[in-house]
């Protein structure tokens, strides 16, 4: 068996959990928001990559829970509780929600980034989970990597380099 740390990849509209020494990553966040919910003392957490703010936007049945901010966060917390974490120890960090293209028209779709950010924060606060750090908005894409050992979220962007929160 291989004991070397793995990088767990979370796809768009996906979610996964992670336990140190493994780390977890999601790539190419544009207007999407990447959220990590974790327990630092247990060195464990989970990440989701949400595309849309609200599962009521689904126009077809049985929506993929990871796609929407509200259902993704509910599901992620459920997974972490099932893994033995306690809700009151959970903290969150988030990144993304950019506006990738600048338009003059005030099309509602162009505001999907800010709407995603707000929906994520609202849902986290509904669960009483504090947000310890965020790198949101702007107009750059982001790739994020979370290390549950240090609870550090590393954010990489094409134009602004690397930052830790």
């Amino acid at each position: 068996m291989n004991d070397a740390p793995h990088i767990i990849k979370v796809g768009i509209a996906g979610m996964e959990t992670v336990q140190a020494p493994d780390i977890i990553r999601t790539s190419g966040l544009g207007s999407c928001v990447g959220v990590v919910v974790f327990d630092k003392s247990r060195k464990m957490g989970g990440m989701c990559h949400v595309m849309l703010p609200d599962s009521s936007m689904a126009k077809s049945g049985s929506p993929n829970k990871g796609k929407y901010a509200d259902s993704a966060i509910d599901e992620l917390i459920k997974m972490l509780l099932q893994a033995g974490l306690k809700k009151y120890t959970l903290k969150a960090k988030l990144a993304g929600g950019a506006q990738m293209f600048q338009f003059t028209s005030a099309d509602d779709k162009m505001r999907i980034g800010p709407r995603n950010i707000k929906a994520v924060k609202d849902r986290l606060s509904l669960h009483g989970i504090p947000v310890l750090g965020e790198d949101v908005g702007g107009n750059s894409g982001r790739t994020i990597e979370f290390d549950p050992d240090t609870a550090m979220l590393t954010i990489r962007s094409v134009n602004k380099g690397v930052a830790d929160i």
Binding site: S27, G28, G30, M51, V158
Partner: peptide, 17 residues
């Protein structure tokens, strides 16, 4: 910018259905 960040912008309509 990153391809994924760009492409996801084009998926907003289809992702609702």
């Amino acid at each position: 910018d990153m391809f994924g960040a760009v492409m996801s912008h084009g998926l907003l309509e289809i992702s609702q259905v």
